[in-house]
């Protein structure tokens, strides 16, 4: 099984929230809960810089769709693969 992590370049991220809004998994989670927290979101903005959240125990993690990478106006995100056996 593969796990995807989103690496955010902290020097050029402006914290514009485009990645948080564009993420389809975040949208999926908003159907169960009306707001995004660290518990259910995949990517969030904190202190003006986006960061990704991976939790082993939950089902909805980053899917590797690449929507945020394409949407990011600064091209600050890249996908990294971590293999888990």
């Amino acid at each position: 099984m593969q796990v995807y992590r989103l690496m955010v370049n902290r020097n050029i991220c402006t914290g514009c929230n485009v990645c948080v809004v564009s993420c389809p998994i975040n949208f999926d989670q908003l159907k169960h809960k009306s707001y995004l927290t660290e518990e259910n979101a995949v990517i969030l903005v904190k202190n003006g810089i986006a960061y990704d959240i991976y939790k082993d125990e939950r089902k909805a993690n980053c899917d590797g769709c690449g929507v945020c990478i394409k949407a990011c106006p600064q091209s600050a995100i890249k996908l990294e693969i971590i293999e888990v056996k």
């Binding site: 593969q2 590797g64 990478i69 996908l79």
Partner: peptide, 22 residues
């Protein structure tokens, strides 16, 4: 063979380490 990051690999075909099928 298992599912890989399909969306990213198709959007950015130049990334060598990201393949649609694992």
């Amino acid at each position: 063979i298992s599912r890989g990051p399909v969306g990213t690999s198709r959007r950015f075909p130049t990334l060598e380490d990201i393949i649609p099928e694992v």
